[in-house]
Design a protein around this nucleic acid. Sequence first.
RNA 1: CGGGGCAUAGUGCAACGGCUAGCACGAGUGCUUUGGGAGCAUUUAAUCCCGGUUCGAAUCCGGGUGCCCCGACCA
Length: 413
Amino acid sequence: MKQSQLFTKTLKQTPSDEQSYNARALIQGGFINKEMAGVYDFLPLGLRVLNKIIAIIREEINAVGGQETFLASLQNPELWKKTNRWDDAIYDVWFKTKLKNDTELGLATTHEEPLTNLLRKHISSYKDLPKSIYHFQTKFRNETRAKSGLMRLREFIMKDAYSFHASEEDLDAYYEKMKAAYTNIFKRAGLGDLTYLTFASGGTFSKYSHEFQTLTSAGEDIIYICEKCRVALNREIIEDVNHKCTECGNDKLREEKAVEVGNIFKLKTKYSSPLGLAFMDEEGVSKDVVMGCYGIGPQRLMGTVVETLHDEKGIIWPEAIAPFKVHILSLNKGTEAEKIYADLSSAGIEVLFDDRELTAGEKFADADLIGIPYRVVVSEKSLAAGGVEVKKRSEKEGDIEKVENLLKLFLKN
RNA sequence: CGGGGCAUAGUGCAACGGCUAGCACGAGUGCUUUGGGAGCAUUUAAUCCCGGUUCGAAUCCGGGUGCCCCGACCA
């Protein structure tokens, strides 16, 4: 894409109405726009990143048998009354609205109820199980305090997956597969080294649930890390386990601030029972379906990447989720840059081409701010040196590369 | 929901109760510039809302709204 055509502009100064780094950098770079506290628009650059994160999640969930759907955001209170979650005194994050005839509706905060109810039409026998179903859909949560840019939103997309099983053993086995899928997702998104599988409180039916916590000062959670096992314990359970690792008993735990980027949870029959999702087993006995649920917020994941991967000049996107792979900066009047842009683009490489009539300093500053992994500078100076300068965003110095080698270089990487 | 801070051109800041609300960046025009946010000239554009005090309010008072932060909360 030609940068001269991009409708968004970068800001020279960071916005004064944001404190968190992710919000400041993403707004300054033109990735997102703030509508109100906890509500952001995604602009072309930001949407490209978001879509790449979603694509990674989709691949990994599909790989463990997930079937993608798209459930509605307007929800029927009757289902929520059955699970006792409609009452604001019990579940206080609702945005509620009404039809013109005064019938109440809820804007989806999550989708356990409607999906469980939907599955009543499709699951009746042990032969129909197991199943894994997910979607990417907007959640609305009336948080008392939205905060920290993309870290706690009132309107956000969630990938929520739900699995349905004939037995707890089967759920347990699938849960481990999903755990591995989540590990892959965070690794691919560039957060592998900073993300810990974390034991958290389990609620009614399980001892523990698992969170995926990424270390960052922007996080809201305190976790205790066991380096031996590479797992962590959420502060909410630390007293229950006497400050010892649940895996190996290690009591030398390191306290860190972290953000919950994902959560997996064994629901068992918490929703199937009140909503009447049952199946007939091999003996002809009716049993409640056993469920698990698995959530990731792609926007929070994006915010976490920005919080953790940046320097004083701007964002440093991991290649897998960068808005573009290559950023070409044209500093001369010639057509060399234009040709490189055309050649790389037609080879399927994602290129942002800074063809704007600006000074070199402005282009460099914008490139650093936007944070595309590879910067290619085309100038009289580079051409005189035999080619173009190729520099990684994550490195200080670049190298002169011959123009004819670029295609090979970027197709290889 | 408790506590604190803030609200002025598109953006970032300034202005003792008093003159035509100032500066920088941005944007428009013209000329000059091009390896780290360039120069000259010129133009453009603002006091969150409602009420009050006062000869006079961006400034003081009351109420509202919005934003940020701390805490509470958070499948």
